[in-house]
């Protein structure tokens, strides 16, 4: 195959993987603090609609992306208030966040359906992006792509190399002991949830400003749920989230290319592939109990009520 084609396929894999990577990295931090937020899909679609609409109004996709980050974080506060302050069931509340996000985004975005979007242009670092072959791939992509890669590195460093990261993990592993040591459990969890919301919001903005550049109702199409599965797949390790997100991005792109090449498999079967792959991956991971047990935050999903 022509090297040029391979490069363009690799770039499209990056585009498909970036939203998964962002949302999964955010959720990883949330789950490391012991909170299971199933509302990723909802926060992502709120980010998508906020990013798109603000970019339309201001004409600037970067302001759109910042708005999406803010919208995701604010929206996640709803979840944080219910599960952390009112100790509601985290699974049910996460579902509620997704249902509300899908509904709210449909209402906000109704006026924007069918409008041509503003695509975030690629950064094109001078000289370097003109390098043959790898130039475009490494130095000629959009800002959100680079942000996602830097973010994984930062999160990995934060969780395993800083004092604050250790505190966050201790809250997720044993909230009662952490509380007894004077670590502000609820405050740390609030911040983790909002970080997850911000990441999901940016992931949504990537969809509506880079990937598709348009507003389509329900455009997240289950990506938030795949991001949740990626966290399990990665057994709560940031580097493995990176690998997982790119594997899934590759599956998505392979499916498009199979359709384009006219491989005689019904399109619907190819569209199902990423979802089917998720189920299979979850089964493979679950079979390896030992690895899962070591890395799962021990207090994941358990409510915490501070005694006075």
């Amino acid at each position: 195959m022509d090297a040029q084609i391979i490069v363009s396929i690799l770039i499209s894999v990056c585009v498909a993987s970036t939203p998964l990577l962002l949302a999964a990295t955010g959720e990883l931090v949330v789950e490391r603090s012991g909170v299971l937020n199933l509302g990723v899909e909802g926060m992502m679609i709120i980010g998508a609609v906020a990013g798109f609409s603000v970019a339309q109004i201001t004409g600037n996709p970067y302001i759109g992306a910042i708005a999406a980050i803010g919208a995701g974080a604010v929206f996640s506060l709803l979840f944080a208030f219910l599960t952390l302050s009112l100790v509601t069931n985290q699974v049910a509340t996460g579902l509620a966040l997704t249902i509300l996000g899908l509904g709210l985004s449909g209402m906000i975005g109704e006026g924007f359906v069918g409008q041509p979007g503003i695509k975030m242009t690629s950064l094109d670092i001078p000289y370097l992006s003109d390098l043959p072959l790898v130039g475009k791939l490494l130095f000629g992509q959009d800002a959100i792509f680079y942000t996602s890669l830097i973010l994984v590195g930062l999160v990995s460093w934060f969780l395993f190399r800083t004092r604050a990261g250790l505190m966050l993990r201790s809250v997720g592993d044993n909230s009662k002991s952490a509380h007894a040591l004077g670590i502000p459990v609820i405050r740390i969890r609030y911040m983790a949830v909002m970080f997850g919301g911000a990441c999901s919001g940016l992931a949504g903005a990537h969809l509506s400003l880079v990937y598709v550049p348009q507003w389509v109702e329900g455009m997240t199409a289950g990506r938030g749920w795949i991001a949740l599965a990626l966290v399990v797949f990665a057994s709560w390790r940031p580097a493995r989230v990176l690998v997982g997100a790119y594997l899934f991005g590759a599956v998505t792109i392979a499916q498009f290319h199979a359709q384009a090449l006219g491989i005689p498999i019904p399109a619907q079967f190819l569209t199902s592939l990423p979802y089917l792959a998720t189920v299979i991956v979850l089964v493979i991971i679950a079979r390896n109990r030992r690895m899962t047990m070591i890395n799962t935050p021990a207090s994941l999903g358990q409510p915490f009520v501070p005694d006075r």
Binding site: L78, L82, L86, V87, T88, N89, A92, T93, L95, A96, I99, L100, G101, L102, G103, L104, G106, M107, E110
Partner: peptide
């Protein structure tokens, strides 16, 4: 009125049900 408001109502309702159960 957009009938999308229905979905917003339904989502809010679930939130309030969960909150009130506390």
């Amino acid at each position: 009125v957009s009938n999308r408001a229905t979905n917003v109502f339904q989502g809010l309702l679930l939130f309030f049900v969960l909150a009130c159960d506390t």
